[in-house]
Write a protein that binds this DNA or RNA. Structure first.
Length: 375
DNA sequence: GTTGTGATCCC
DNA sequence: CCATGTATCACAAC
């Protein structure tokens, strides 16, 4: 009884964050080790022109030259124009997925955790509270995991251990790549205070800039701001989150049962287009792709949305709720078509660059059969 | 509460 | 004509 109380104390948890290093590019290195010492750039080619698209992930050799995620391929090429051999590869999501699955099943075979959370293809949290007696045991376990990943899958990762998710993630980030770092409770403030605010998840380009404009650059400076000020400036929820994060407090639970809330498919058109039939056929492809994902996950949906991105990269959304949950393809394509026609009717000239289809308000199909009697 | 839209993040 | 694809959340308006 007393022990259980301890385990439930959120301050006393043992949380481990594992992050596979430069994952997509590392997968390519695993497939073809001969490219290891060259800059490797895994790219999303949009198909508009031969070179249009962005860099998804690059290895650390490429990063030395200033290559970053999200950078246009053209920009990356100009940064690397003096380098003799550079490897540009298109994303091969399915291949990365197979490596990812192997890696996580290996991790879970070593750490018999009840509570874990997999995020995307390259990240997970493990709650080691109930299987380790302290950070020391957790360290041994984590190093064991690191070794197995490296020896069996040739995969390097960075690991952070601390007593909550926020700090575990900051810790894994801290010594990347192939890193390992622990943040003990009594060291938290000292370690995080001098870090840039961008180490806090949720502070990206926009929020970093806003905070900088308020004179806040480091975590310490953030912690010195009044919480009511932060709430007023950034909204209640995010403001409170910022304040608590700045002093290392985070009580987010680890839970593996986070279900998809939406499924989106976005596509860049080959050329700007106001040709209705052309766009409609593209939309129809996206619908089919979403439909197969819905079937794959056995999900019903109740909301259908469209995303339009025009030649000026302005984003517009249109969506509508359906009368009830459904899994029919027609219940997807019909609203998509009507939303599209509604949207274009408000424009004289339309230059679409990218289009997207989204379904949300998702629900597992299971059990639904029993409920139909009552509907 | 429900519904629709835009902002932001991360890669 | 450099700028992907996907997910989550806040918030306004009803």
């Amino acid at each position: 009884m007393f022990e259980r109380k301890d385990v439930n104390n959120l301050e006393k948890r043992i949380i481990c964050h594992i992050d596979f290093d430069y994952f997509f590019a590392q997968c390519e290195e695993i497939r073809n080790p001969s490219i290891k010492d060259l800059p490797v750039l895994v790219c999303v080619f949009s198909g508009r022109t031969k070179e249009s698209g962005i860099v998804s992930t690059s290895n650390y050799v490429a990063r030395k030259y200033g290559i970053k995620s999200g950078m246009p391929i053209r920009t990356a090429k100009s940064k690397l124009k003096d380098i003799e051999s550079v490897v540009f590869l298109p994303v091969d999501y399915e291949y990365y997925e197979t490596i990812s699955k192997k890696a996580f099943s290996l991790i879970l075979s070593i750490a018999k955790v009840i509570n874990y959370e997999i995020i995307g293809l390259d990240e997970c949290f493990l709650d080691l509270t109930s299987i380790c007696r302290g950070f020391q045991e957790a360290t041994a376990l984590a190093k064991n995991i690191k070794n197995h990943l490296l020896n069996e899958l040739y995969l390097s990762c960075s690991v952070g251990i601390s007593y909550n998710k926020l700090l575990a993630k900051i810790a894994s980030e801290y010594k990347k790549p192939n890193g390992f770092f622990i943040i003990n409770p009594n060291e938290t403030i000292q370690i995080i205070s001098n870090l840039d605010i961008s180490v806090i998840p949720g502070i990206g380009q926009k929020n970093k800039r806003r905070l900088n404009e308020l004179g806040i650059k480091t975590v310490r400076e953030l912690s010195e701001k009044n919480i009511t000020f932060l709430k007023k400036t950034f909204g209640n929820r995010f403001g409170e989150y910022l304040h608590l994060s700045s002093i290392g407090i985070n009580e987010d639970p680890i839970n593996k049962k986070i279900e998809n809330k939406q499924i989106t498919r976005i596509k860049t058109l080959k050329q700007y287009s106001d040709n209705i039939e052309y766009v409609q056929s593209a939309l129809s492809e996206l619908c089919k792709s979403i439909y197969s994902e819905l079937r794959h996950q056995d999900l019903l949906f109740r909301n259908v949305g469209l995303i339009f991105i025009d030649n000026k990269l302005k984003v517009t959304n249109r969506s509508k709720n359906l009368k009830k949950y459904t899994q029919n393809l027609n219940d997807l394509t019909d609203p998509v078509n009507s939303l599209f026609l509604e949207y274009i009717s408000t424009y004289d000239i339309l230059k679409l660059r990218r289009i997207g289809v989204k379904v949300c308000m998702l629900k597992k199909y299971e059990g639904q059969r029993n409920l139909t009697n009552y509907m």
